[in-house]
């Protein structure tokens, strides 16, 4: 392996919670929340990484920080060896040709007043390559994502969710990017349509050698199409590793809980559920020690006071937990599946 295509190192993103004056008046010394706290990962060409976590865990913020849509507080995002966080907006622009983002809501992310043809050829106009035959480009892109040429004349409201998603994929592919960041690409789609979109990703990856970063909360999706996955909780990675390995031998209790929160489509499935209670704590008020201890089934005294450090569990599999699950634990999860 050579240098990875995208390398994110100790990335931090902070958001202000109140204006400086209000903070002063209220005596709040640190009016920020850390949406992403020290996240590191990399993606190579032709590889798919899945980013999994509950709402508010910072998945989408990572995607936005990579694209330069929100500023990084510290850490670096390097694309093909260049540190993007150091670039001025003008110097950043060319890199957006190589990295394409698909936003969450398939219909909502398309302008309602543009036709599909304008939507999918818009990237050419924005990046100053609008002199080519746009009709031909539109046809090529529609064909690539498996839509009929007639769709070029339609408006977003005339598309179904799955079709709108395909248009989103076509837009992302327009400039031949090397990396696609897909934020919840199948949220809100039916299972049969979800399969079509994921198959489309797999096919395009095989054909074009794309690197894909998929953000999702659906573990079933991650399992089938990603090579590696990272589990996020409160802006940090709690576990990262090869997808199969994480599925079969999760080491972090949160991963285990997420895996078992995936109801089986079988009424007689053994419900040996590791239910976690409560909800994700607020970022404004992070728990002490291990941030998961408030919901963890195995939390002990040490977890409340001391934050666990990153532990390696074999090649490219790491986690942060004082009392990681052993095979004895995971035996239960396996028995259920």
């Amino acid at each position: 392996m050579t240098t990875p295509l995208l390398k994110v190192d100790d990335l931090r993103v902070r958001f202000r919670t109140m204006g400086p004056l209000k903070a002063l008046a209220k005596g709040v010394p640190d009016p920020y929340i850390d949406a992403v706290c020290g996240v590191s990962f990399d993606i190579s060409e032709g590889e798919t990484l899945g980013l999994v976590g509950e709402s508010g865990s910072g998945k989408s913020t990572i995607a936005r920080a990579i694209m330069g849509l929100v500023p990084a507080e510290s850490g670096s995002v390097s694309f093909a060896g260049t540190d993007l966080t150091a670039l001025s907006p003008r110097r950043f622009a060319p890199y957006r040709r190589d990295m394409a983002m698909m936003f969450q809501d398939p219909v909502g992310s398309l302008s309602p007043r543009l036709t599909v043809r304008s939507l999918i050829t818009e990237p050419f106009r924005i990046h100053g390559t609008g002199d080519r035959d746009l009709d031909q480009e539109a046809r090529r892109l529609l064909k690539m994502v498996g839509l009929n040429e007639d769709f070029a004349r339609r408006f977003p409201h005339q598309l179904s969710g799955g079709q709108a998603r395909r248009v989103g994929v076509a837009r992302a592919l327009a400039l031949n990017p090397k990396l696609i960041i897909a934020d919840e690409p199948t949220a809100g789609l039916d299972v049969s349509v979800q399969g079509e979109i994921l198959n489309l990703f797999a096919r395009l990856q095989d054909e074009l050698g794309l690197a894909i970063l998929i953000i999702t909360h659906n573990l079933n999706v991650v399992r089938h199409i990603t090579d590696r996955m990272a589990i996020m909780y409160l802006g940090r990675f709690v576990e990262q590793g090869p997808t199969e390995e994480v599925f079969y031998t999760p080491r972090h209790p949160y991963t285990e809980a997420l895996l078992s929160a995936n109801p089986e489509p079988d009424p007689d499935a053994v419900l040996d559920r590791i239910a976690i209670s409560g909800e994700v704590p607020s970022l404004m008020n992070r728990p002490s020690g291990c941030e998961f201890h408030t919901r963890c089934l195995y939390a002990q005294g040490k977890c409340r006071t001391e934050a666990p450090v990153l532990t390696e569990a074999g090649e490219s599999h790491s986690f942060t937990c004082h009392y990681p699950l052993t095979t004895a634990h995971t035996g239960r999860t396996k028995a259920a599946s």
Binding site: A202, H224, P265
Partner: peptide
């Protein structure tokens, strides 16, 4: 179609 039913990892759903 439910990916939760598919035990074997597959690229073609």
């Amino acid at each position: 179609c439910d990916p939760g039913r598919i035990r074997q990892k597959t690229r073609e759903l």
